[in-house]
Design a binder for these strands. Structure first.
Lengths: 344, 344
DNA sequence: CTCATGGCTGCACACGTTTCCAATCATTGG
DNA sequence: CCAATGATTGGAAACGTGTGCAGCCATGAG
C-alpha cells in the first residue's frame, strides 16, 4: 500500500497495466496523449518501478558483486571507487563484500552473490584459491579479476605488469649508483611478490650485478613486516645502501626502522615502494615509488565486465603499466660505500 | 535452463513445488523422509534459491544501501568495513554507492536504492542537504546516519562526541604548558568543525586562557588545506607553540609545512590530529590524535539499523567517545616561549 | 459500402517464490 | 465399523513487471 505499483497507476488512468508499462518505457505502441497522461500520473503518485519484479522477468538484475579482502585497504578502496563510478554510470549497482581472506567467508559471499543473481563479479583479493574459483565458476557469470593471476580458462582480468615495473624501480636505484640493493618481499608464495622479485633480479642481471640471496628478506605486505625485515637487513655487514620494497606499506615500516636506527633517508639509505598510496607523498621524506593507476584499473575492470555483459567477446586480460614516481627517498649512495662494493 | 528452480526439483522428486519450498525451509509440515530426499536432490542439482523471487513475495530484500561521499576516504572505508561485517553476519548484503558530494549523484543514488527496495539505508557523508533528506524520507525506510547532524525527526544516528573529544585534546596541550594554541578547522560551516572548535574554546575557557581569533584558521579537511593554514599560522608573530587540527589529514599537511620551515616537531611546535587514521602511527613523528572507533561505529550503526528493521524501537542517537592517543608529536613548549606568553 | 490496413489497447501468461486453504490418507477412540 | 483427528500433500493465488497475441476502432482505398 505504501508503495505504488503499475496497477495502481492503471486503475487511476483507467487503462490496463500493460499500457502503463509501455508508456513508462516510451514504447511507440502507445499514443502520445495517453503516454503523457500516464507518465504525469506516475510522477504525481511518486511511482518507483520495482527492480526486483523487473529482474524476475528480465532475468537481469543490473547488479554486480565486488569481493575484496577488505575495503579498509587503501589500495583496494581506490580500485573499488573506480569500479563503482563506471558501474553507476551504466545503471549497475554494486554489492560489496569483504572476504577478510577467510575461505569460509569467501564461499559464503559467492553463494550470496549467486542467490542474488548478480550479473557479473569482480574480485580484488590477493589470492584466489582453486576451491573458491570453482564455486565462482559454478554460477556461469562473467568474472573479472584485478591483479590476480590464475590459470583459469574462462576468467578475464586486468593486471599490472609487475616485472617491468619493479625492474624499472630497481634500475632507478642502480642508475643512482647503488650496487648493494635489497628487496623486501611479501609473504612467500604470492604471485605478485614472485613477479616483483623477478623484476628486481632482471634489473640486477642486466646491469651485471650479482644477485646476493642474503639481501632478499620477506615481510607481510604491512608496516610490521617491513619493520622486521628492515631490522634483519640492517644487521647485515655491510648493510644494503638501498631497499626496494614490495609495497608502500612495507616501505612505511622500513622507513620507520631506518629512522629509529638513526639512519637518514635518503642520505644513508635509499628506499623505494610500490603502489603510490596517498600517504606516499606525505611520508618524511616523501617516498619514491611505483604508481599503480588504481582507480583507472577499477574503471577498466568494470568496462571489461560491461563488454562481457553485452556479449562482446573481448581480450582476456588487460595489462597496465606502473609509473616510477621519483620523490625524495632515493639518492646516490655515499661515496665510500659506492666504492666499497663495486660492480663484481 | 541453466539455473534450477524449485519446480525442477519438484518434477524430479515427484512432489509439488510447495512441498519443495517447505522442505527447504525445514518446515515441520513435511515428513522427515521426503524432506531429506528433497534436500538431497536439491543439493545434487546445485539449487540456489532466487533471492529476487523471494523478495518479491516477502517484500523484504535483505539488502541495505550505504551511501558515502567516497570509499577512497580511509575514515569512511573503516566505517564501511564495520557495517559490512555485521550486515553479512545477519544475512544482509550491502549496496555501496559513492555520492562524491555531488547533489545530483546523491539523488540518483537514493532513487536507485529505492527502486532496488533496500530494507534500510546508512549514510556516511560529511553533510546531508535538506533536499536530499526529503528524497531519503520519501521511501519510508529506516535510515541511520553516521557522524551527521541533522535536525530530521525520524532519522537515527551514531555520532562521536566532538566537543568532549576536542576539549580533551586541547586540554592535553594546555597541561603540557602550552598557552598559545592554534586551531586549524575544516571548511567553514561544517557541523563537526563547529563542534570541534567549540571543544577547543571550552578548554581554553576552563583554563582561563583568552581566546585569540587570529589563532583560528581554516583548511579543507585535506593535507593541502592543512599546509595553507599552517603557513598562515607560522607567519604570525609570535607563532603558536601548538596546533590542534580538525583531522589527521589536516595535521599531515601542517606537519609537512612545519618540517619545510625547519621546525622540529614536537620540540619547536606540538601537533594534534583527530580520527587516528592508520597513518597517524607512521608519520614522523607519530601523531598524537583523538581516536574515533571507526569500525566500531560502523558496527553500531548497522546494529541500530537491525533493531529498527526488527521493529524494536531503540534510542534515537548513539553517542561514542573519542580517545586521546598520545604519541610523539606533542611535548612541552620550549621554556622561553612558555614564559613569553604567560597566562593572561 | 465493404474490406483491408494500421494504430492502440487489453488479456493472459511468465518469471520463482511463499503461503493459505482444501484435500487426501492413515490412525485411533468409541 | 464409523467418525474424528492429525499428519502430509497439492492447488492456487499473490508479489510487480514485461511482452506476445488477439482484438478493437478508425481510416482510406477500391
Amino acid at each position: 500500500m505504501s508503495t505504488v505499483s503499475i496497477k495502481d497507476i492503471a486503475r487511476v488512468a483507467k487503462v490496463s497495466h500493460s499500457t502503463v508499462s509501455r508508456a513508462l518505457h516510451n514504447s511507440p505502441l502507445v499514443s502520445r496523449e495517453t503516454a503523457e497522461r500516464i507518465r504525469r500520473i506516475a510522477e504525481e503518485m511518486g511511482y518507483r518501478p520495482s527492480a526486483v519484479a523487473r529482474s524476475l522477468v528480465t532475468r537481469k538484475t543490473k547488479t554486480i558483486g565486488v569481493v575484496v579482502t577488505t575495503i579498509a585497504d587503501p589500495f583496494i578502496a581506490e580500485v573499488v571507487s573506480g569500479i563503482e563510478e563506471v558501474a553507476n554510470d551504466h545503471g549497475y549497482s554494486v554489492f560489496l563484500a569483504n572476504s577478510n581472506a577467510d575461505p569460509d567467508r569467501e564461499i559464503k559471499v559467492v553463494h550470496s552473490f549467486h542467490e542474488r543473481r548478480v550479473d557479473g563479479i569482480l574480485v580484488t583479493a590477493s589470492r584466489v584459491g582453486a576451491l573458491y574459483m570453482n564455486h565462482l565458476s559454478e554460477m556461469k557469470v562473467p568474472i573479472v579479476l584485478i591483479n590476480n593471476q590464475h590459470p583459469g580458462e574462462f576468467v578475464h582480468s586486468v593486471m599490472i605488469d609487475n616485472v617491468t615495473a619493479s625492474r624499472t624501480a630497481t634500475e632507478h636505484l642502480i642508475q643512482l649508483g647503488h650496487r648493494h640493493i635489497a628487496y623486501i618481499g611479501d609473504q612467500f608464495g604470492y604471485q605478485s611478490d614472485t613477479e616483483r622479485f623477478a623484476g628486481y633480479r632482471q634489473a640486477l642481471e642486466r646491469s651485471g650485478l650479482t644477485f646476493q640471496p642474503e639481501l632478499v628478506v620477506h615481510g607481510d605486505g604491512k608496516p610490521e613486516g617491513g619493520m622486521r625485515a628492515m631490522e634483519r637487513l640492517l644487521a647485515l655487514a655491510p648493510p644494503p645502501t638501498a631497499v626496494f620494497c614490495y609495497n608502500d606499506m612495507t616501505a612505511l615500516g622500513a622507513l620507520r626502522v631506518a629512522r629509529m636506527r638513526g639512519l637518514r633517508v635518503p642520505e644513508d639509505i635509499s628506499l623505494v615502494g610500490f603502489d603510490d598510496l596517498f600517504i606516499a607523498s606525505y611520508t618524511e621524506p616523501p617516498l619514491t615509488t611505483i604508481r599503480q593507476p588504481k582507480r583507472q584499473m577499477g574503471r577498466q575492470a568494470m568496462a571489461l565486465l560491461l563488454q562481457l555483459l553485452n556479449g562482446e567477446n573481448s581480450q582476456q586480460t588487460i595489462w597496465v603499466q606502473g609509473e616510477l614516481i621519483i620523490r625524495a627517498s632515493t639518492a646516490p649512495p655515499r661515496k665510500e660505500e659506492a666504492y666499497a662494493h663495486p660492480r663484481s
